[in-house]
Design a binder for these strands. Structure first.
Lengths: 165, 165
DNA sequence: CCTTGCGTTCGAGCGCGCTCGAAGCCTTAA
DNA sequence: TTAAGGCTTCGAGCGCGCTCGAACGCAAGG
């Protein structure tokens, strides 16, 4: 299936480092005919607190059923949605936008184009952010590499008595 | 000089897209025997507000002189430091850490090892963040690509009546 | 029976990083 | 001479995304 290919490419881009098991689950653990889960299980799986899960529910992002004693029961759809939501949160989409997106989802298939617009815009935002970070990373690495080495473009100008940052 | 080489590599990694002139300046505009600047000029150059510049000063991140009528005068060292600070902020270093770092700088050369530790840790943080974002980017692109296309791993499981996110 | 522990609701509080408004000073162009 | 506009200090306020505490319910083991 295509997901594996994509995942493989993603992982290849990332290098060997500790890509958490949870992260992989967030990409792949979808569509597996899951059992209903408790709030603690979902919180554990998504690596967020039960408090946050209740907060998302209050915010209208997801509807969650209750069992006979009033406890939350997360069915597959709820879990799937929460996987999506946490992924979006993690990549910096504001709650506001997520709320709007979910409104669109609940409004039916007519809103698919607008949802796509949002996703595309968010994709671009992520890309910009990655570029920003890449630039800062290069600068930081450069600084690390040259720190203490007495020569370097900036140091030649540094006046005596001023301490380098 | 080495800076250009690094910059070139950084830009190569980023592709053709609009890397802002400011961003390049933030990498290179250091060590140019700059004239003293007003708060508005610095704000403009760093793309932050004068309010924020005053806030950084209050936070102890930078010392800024005054002219005869009490106006701030940003000399080369202040500007250089602010370039560094904004770069760090942009890449997600908390104010707290920046304050600590600056304390170390002001404490003298003995603290260089600890400063290096901080930079290395921050570098790792940036790397982790980039990996996270890359993963989310892949997921978002995948979602965009398959949205509306009726087939896909998740869709085959979707029960009738449930709207896809 | 009762303790332990996880669940519930509700509203309040917090940490972060700005962001702003008020009241006043300085400088320049009309 | 005066009006505009940018600067100053100070403290307060805000938007975001949680995070927590209080007061209570339910269920399972000793």
């Amino acid at each position: 299936m295509a997901t594996d290919e994509l995942l493989t490419r993603a992982l290849a881009m990332l290098g060997e480092d500790d890509v958490s098991v949870e992260a992989i689950h967030r990409l792949t653990d979808v569509g597996g005919m899951t059992e209903p889960m408790t709030i603690a299980e979902v919180a554990d799986m998504l690596d967020i607190s039960p408090h946050t899960l209740r907060y998302y529910e209050r915010a209208g992002l997801v509807e969650v059923g209750r069992d006979s004693s009033g406890y939350r029961v997360y069915d597959e759809e709820a879990v799937r949605r929460l996987v999506f939501l946490t992924r979006m949160r993690l990549s910096g989409m504001p709650m506001r936008d997520l709320q709007h997106y979910i409104e669109l989802v609940d409004a039916g298939a007519d809103t698919v184009p607008e949802r796509l617009d949002m996703l595309v815009e968010h994709r671009d935002t992520i890309r910009r952010r990655i570029r920003e970070l890449t630039l800062s990373l290069a600068a930081t690495e450069y600084k690390i590499a040259t720190y203490g080495g007495s020569t370097g473009p900036e140091v030649t100008v540094t006046s005596p008595g001023s301490e380098r940052t």
